[in-house]
Design a protein around this nucleic acid. Structure first.
Lengths: 84, 84
DNA sequence: ATAGTATTTAGATATTTGTCTAAATAACTA
DNA sequence: TAGTTATTTAGACAAATATCTAAATACTAT
């Protein structure tokens, strides 16, 4: 749980997640969307990946990132136990 | 959303929330449960309160804290929009 | 009033985090 | 092979965070 909350505790990372909700994107496409250096985006992607919130797949020269929604189950479950 | 994620991004604060799930507690009772100074716990309570995750009510000499589950709706909603 | 208890505020400090630039790695292209 | 593009790794640094002790505030009780 720690890594999930850590990963979500950043506006840029949450926006990356929202982008990936609509379609898979490679690192460069993601970076284009932000006013931030590519290494910084790469770092954010790494944190999201460690939290299992996204997955990556090498496609030739590019690395494509996808959202992993299954891990969000854990989060929802944690919240639901609080609500009663 | 920012303040919610920030508040949840700490093991101690998540444990406080879990304690308050079962029953309201005053600051001293909460502090007893942790191997940490009272001012530190007070600080965590402040962050939880700013995020609206808990509420406080003065009861004479004590301050009683309660969980505010309604704010968790926002969080669940945010997650749910990702899952489709 | 004075002393005691509950809690927070203030100020200090070490650690973590987000960002950058420069360099490294990996893959494609000619 | 050499050059170009895509991405990450390394190292530095400023800002944010979690913690502590000491002091302040607020209430209770004698």
């Amino acid at each position: 749980m720690n890594s999930i909350f850590k990963a979500l505790n950043d506006e840029t990372r949450r926006e990356i997640i929202e982008l990936l909700k609509d379609r898979d994107m490679n690192a460069g496409q993601i970076a284009e969307r932000f006013n931030m250096s590519k290494p910084s985006i790469s770092h954010h992607l790494d944190i999201l990946k460690r939290a299992d919130l996204i997955t990556s797949e090498k496609k030739g020269q590019f690395i494509e990132y996808s959202l992993n929604t299954t891990i969000l189950e854990d989060l929802v479950n944690w919240i639901m136990t609080l609500k009663k």
